[in-house]
């Protein structure tokens, strides 16, 4: 029974497709996708980079934050076609190839900066982006809160994440 049913079920939507090419975590990728596909869905479901999470699809939670041409941005508020030709970096690119944690990730672990871990990739990408910007980091309580504003976390109450940012600055010699 399942077999006959399966044959009757469509496999693809009727959406027109466009070719999209971009660099993701250093690798060139090309796909044909619907014009309306969000970059978050493209990364997660076309490229299977499921570390980028989706918590709201309206720009508030920050779970979907990735680096677009080096700057933190919402992948849920970007169409895959819009990112044509972009350089994208996701959480999967942050640790070393052998799995060694990046200092920001290491600091989160040491400071218990995550609980369920759902907001974590977006938080880490946002922090990594800021750490890569030239200039002095504002590591006051206020400064770090401002850095983190734009990423919701429902588990930690943020204070351990604030500690983690400070610890990461120490580990990176930016303190």
């Amino acid at each position: 029974m399942a077999r006959t049913m399966k044959a009757a079920i469509p496999d693809r939507s009727a959406d027109a497709e466009v070719d999209v090419s971009m660099t993701v975590n250093g690798e060139a990728v090309s796909r044909s996708v619907s014009v309306r596909m969000l970059l978050s869905d493209f990364l997660r479901h076309e490229l299977r980079l499921t570390g980028t999470h989706v918590g709201c699809e309206h720009g508030v939670c920050g779970c979907c934050t990735v680096l677009l041409n080096g700057r933190a941005g919402r992948s849920c508020l970007t169409l895959a076609v819009q990112a044509n030709g972009y350089d994208i970096r996701t959480i999967e690119s942050v640790a070393s190839a052998d799995g060694t944690l990046h200092p920001v990730q290491q600091a989160f672990k040491e400071c218990h900066g995550l609980q369920c871990g759902y907001c974590t990739p977006g938080m880490v990408m946002n922090i990594v982006a800021r750490f890569e910007e030239p200039g002095k980091l504002d590591l006051t309580d206020e400064g770090i809160r401002d850095l983190l504003s734009g990423n919701l976390c429902r588990c930690t109450g943020y204070l351990n994440i604030i500690a983690a940012v400070r610890r990461a600055a120490e580990l990176l010699g930016r303190a």
Binding site: F108, L114, P121
Partner: peptide, 10 residues
């Protein structure tokens, strides 16, 4: 559990 979650491997 942290390394896995931090690497986006949850």
């Amino acid at each position: 559990i942290d390394p896995k979650l931090l690497r986006g491997e949850g």
